[in-house]
Design a protein around this nucleic acid. Structure first.
Lengths: 339, 339
DNA sequence: AAACATATTGAAATCGATTTCACAAAATGC
DNA sequence: GCATTTTGTGAAATCGATTTCAATATGTTT
């Protein structure tokens, strides 16, 4: 920068002013400075910049598995919105490890980033609140946290369950199993709530045997389903907490010779890429992932740049049931089958 | 840091020495300093640190689509190795836009990162070389660049093609189409070379009509296949440049009523997640993605920390053909079919 | 006990930008 | 034409760490 200043015969202060359009600089000197910058191929040093300004214009996005289309879509929404606001994002993959999620907080603590977005985090609401109360800026996707300065974007899990179960009841099912994720995740809890509500609404009993927990991935679904199935509970339909788990159910069924949807109806959540390729095509629930990412990060950036801004903080977005082959068959009470 | 120094009754220099174990500090003062750090909950500022040290211990990983399992696995390899060397990585998704790939270079230019890893980049070798010659540190995955200071990890594309084609010839195919990616990508070029070599080896003619280019994704495969198919070339097998494209072929076939593998054999490359779920299961080629990522970044870090280090710079890793249902059928010259 | 080596520490310079403050030059008002 | 405001610019302080250099304290050798 000093070189630029010398070449343009001005002070570094002026160079800085030109770079940031901060205060008026005469057209003539501005021209000189720009030319010098160009000739020297000068690029301002990011560390120096953020050291002085105490801002990095960078947001960390913490996801548990970039591989999953759920996260990938959200990240795209975040990225595009962030870029349009001249923010950079860094994507942090925790590979489903709780410990790594905590580690990532150091990015905010050492001021590598200005803010963090946690997507469907593993850590508890209380931990996040404590973190925010220590002065860090955080946004959450996929969960709702009651806190005045934490923006959240999430889908109504209760409603998702209710719609799915209503659809299954409509198809004549009454023994509907629920493959849930980690028992203590908010998602799981809310979906279970919706599941129970829907049953109650249909005046069906809630049988705890029909609920099984597992990991939020293919193998989790596979194992949880096998535990369920070997209990011989006359299940005719499975509601899996996400499509990955539903794929695990598919695999188990293939091994066990159970045909979908004739012998078993399966529904997932996410509408991931595989869902529409696999045979039979998987019924699922679509969430506006891209929009959640974009909305949330826009809100977060607004919040960082204007502390008074106390607009809407919580985004509860709508989901949509997508009915495909895996839930295309109706059954009646006698056990006979019709398409 | 000044607070810490005051609380411990030492200078900031000493605090810094304690933090970095740089030079001898007496056990007693060290203890005092550590205690003060702990009590004040002090965390060094990353910007200041890297401004002074001219190092960020951060590596940018540029991929064209984090969603793809090809990239995701590589990134995991990179991340784990980088972390074990106390480096951070930032993942940059270019969403297949060439322009964004170029933009990402600014991360190195403004010293936000110490080095960049390009995974299967779109930009040309010459552009990358020019960048490196301007003093930036770069590693490449998925392509080979002849340059003394660019480490590369890649698979032998020629060999991949040869093995795939050999397998198909073995199954009795002689009209084998090749769905290539961008015509000017190195991958495409090398695979085409392997394709031609294999044909020559089998004393079959090379028919340019059988080669079609498309985008490296599902839709690219779909469209390229349709262009091919409507030329009515008596194709019995398709070799797609990656699994995504193969999935596009699947979709087109479903629409056109072509059965796989009875009427058409399909093989992809990548062994992505969908490949083993879809019906029929897709034959493909597995590359050691995780290992490529880890190897490359280890090399890159070594190179940054020791300029004399002129060990192996190029990693040509082995791939493996995975035969599944989509290529399970043999044909003979009379056109009859057997499993 | 003097001379010298070694261990420990602090003051101050430095990294490369931004920003405050002051001041000169130009523009405006009367 | 003089006072006043506005504009444009530079010198120097600052952000928060690291590192050099010098100074002091301690230990060792004769």
């Amino acid at each position: 920068m000093i070189d630029v200043a010398q070449r343009a015969n001005v002070s570094t202060a002026t160079v800085s002013r030109v770079l940031n359009n901060s205060s008026r600089v005469s057209a003539k000197t501005k021209q000189k400075v720009l030319q010098a910058i160009d000739e020297l191929n000068y690029i301002p040093n990011a560390s120096a910049k953020s050291l002085r300004s105490q801002k990095t214009r960078t947001i960390a996005v913490v996801v548990s598995d970039i591989h999953s289309s759920y996260f990938a879509e959200i990240v795209k929404g975040i990225e595009n919105m962030a870029n349009s606001r001249k923010y950079r994002i860094v994507i942090c993959d925790t590979q489903n490890e709780r410990e790594k999620e905590v580690e990532m907080m150091s990015l905010a603590m050492d001021r590598t980033v200005d803010a963090m977005v946690f997507v469907a985090p593993i850590i508890s609401n209380d931990e996040i609140k404590a973190f925010v109360d220590r002065g860090y800026t955080v946004g959450i996707i996929g969960r709702h946290i009651e806190h005045p300065s934490i923006p959240c974007a999430y889908t109504d899990n209760v409603k998702i369950s209710q719609e799915v179960i209503a659809h299954l009841l409509d198809k004549g099912h009454s023994r509907i199993a629920f493959l849930s994720g980690y028992a203590d995740s908010t998602d799981s809890y809310e979906r279970l709530e919706g599941y129970m509500k829907a049953l109650t609404f249909a005046q069906l009993p809630y049988d705890q045997e029909l609920v099984e927990n597992g990991q939020f991935n293919e193998n989790g679904g596979y194992e949880a389903f096998r535990r369920l199935w070997f209990k011989s509970l006359d299940i005719t339909a499975i509601f899996a907490a996400n499509d990955e788990m539903a794929l695990g159910v598919y695999r188990a069924c293939r091994e066990l010779g159970i045909t979908i949807p004739e012998q078993l109806t399966v529904i997932g959540v996410d509408n991931n890429r595989v869902a529409k390729y696999i045979t039979p095509k998987l019924s699922t629930v679509e969430q506006p992932k891209y929009a959640m990412g974009a909305l949330l990060v826009e809100k977060l950036i607004d919040q960082m740049n204007d502390n008074d801004f106390i607009d809407q903080r919580v985004f509860k977005v709508d989901s949509k049931l997508i009915i495909r082959e895996s839930s295309s068959i109706s059954i009646d009470r006698t056990g006979s089958v019709s398409t």
